[in-house]
Amino acid sequence: MSSTVTAVSSNGTYSFTKPNRDSITLLAGLGVEGDVHAGVTVKHRSRVAQDPTQPNLRQVHLIHEELFAEVGADGFEVAPGELGENITTRGMDLLGLPVGTLLRVGDDAVLEVTGLRNPCLQIDAFQDGLLKRVVGRDEAGNIVRKAGIMSVVKHGGTVRPGDTITAELPSEPHRPLDRV
């Protein structure tokens, strides 16, 4: 399984969107160098309020570019970085990967998939009604989260648009992604 990086984004201050960059540097055990969410322990405000000593399982956020076309069909305009992701991808079913999948990105970087992004109401502040398009329910009534996946950095490196991403699935039995 392989895909392509279409954009990379980071922001040193808290804001919903992240500006696109020419490259980002991933730091093992920390996340994206200079990004507000980088660190060993949680950095997302709601999680810090609950317990600031929790491990940071959300160091790097990846989202599939195909989601932008999907929500675009309903009139929403979303571009890379605007949903706060660090890496925008094309060509891989990120949401279908199991926990523990290793993503080799570019020449050196390795990410370990930890779970699904659990989007919040800030998405509706960005574009009213968008939250219902990225979180819904399937035919059985189960919650479906489409706003990307979260990961931790196992091996650092520089990531640029155009880099290849390859997935290495963990040993079976596979655990499906859940929110982190």
Rank of each mutant, 00 (worst) to 15 (best):
M1I: 12
P52R: 08
S9N: 14
G81P: 00
T88N: 07
L103E: 00
L97H: 03
V153C: 06
E33C: 05
T88G: 05
G100A: 10
D124Y: 12
F76Y: 15
L169V: 10
L57Q: 07
A140H: 11
T114R: 04
G84Q: 02
L177V: 11
M150H: 10
F126I: 08
G106E: 09
T25G: 02
D108I: 07
V32H: 00
G96K: 09
Q54H: 07
L116Y: 01
A73G: 14
G75K: 10
A28Q: 08
K146V: 05
L131Q: 04
V113Q: 03
L130S: 04
A167I: 10
H64T: 11
G39C: 12
L102R: 14
G96L: 09
L177I: 09
R160E: 12
T101R: 03
V159F: 05
G141Q: 10
K154F: 04
K43G: 02
E85T: 05
V78I: 15
I24E: 00
V5A: 08
H174A: 09
E85L: 09
M92D: 02
N11I: 08
V42H: 02
K132V: 06
C120S: 05
E66R: 11
G34K: 13
T4F: 05
A38L: 11
E33V: 11
D128G: 07
Q59S: 06
P98Y: 07
P173D: 08
R90C: 13
R133A: 14
I165H: 01
D22T: 15
L94F: 04
T164G: 05
L67G: 01
G96I: 13
P170A: 14
G91M: 11
E33A: 15
A125D: 13
G129H: 10
G148N: 08
G91H: 08
P170N: 12
F76Q: 11
G84V: 03
E82Y: 04
P98G: 09
M1P: 06
C120F: 02
V110T: 13
L169I: 09
D35P: 01
V36E: 07
T4S: 13
D93T: 12
S3Y: 09
F68W: 12
R90K: 15
T88E: 02
E65A: 14
D93I: 07
L130A: 09
N118I: 02
I87C: 01
Y14S: 08
P170W: 12
V48A: 05
T4I: 15
A69H: 09
D138K: 11
V180I: 09
V159Q: 02
G148I: 08
H37W: 04
S171P: 04
L103Q: 00
V71R: 05
G31K: 00
T166N: 06
V48Q: 12
V8S: 00
R47G: 00
V110M: 11
P98S: 10
E77R: 14
G84S: 07
E139Y: 08
Q59A: 07
N142F: 04
I149K: 03
R179A: 15
S2Y: 08
V48M: 10
A73P: 01
G34L: 09
A7I: 02
R104W: 04
A140T: 14
E139P: 03
A28G: 02
Q50R: 13
K146M: 06
I165R: 00
T41C: 13
S46K: 13
S151W: 00
T17I: 06
H37I: 04
S2K: 15
E77F: 05
C120E: 01
L62M: 13
R145E: 11
N11Q: 07
A73H: 06
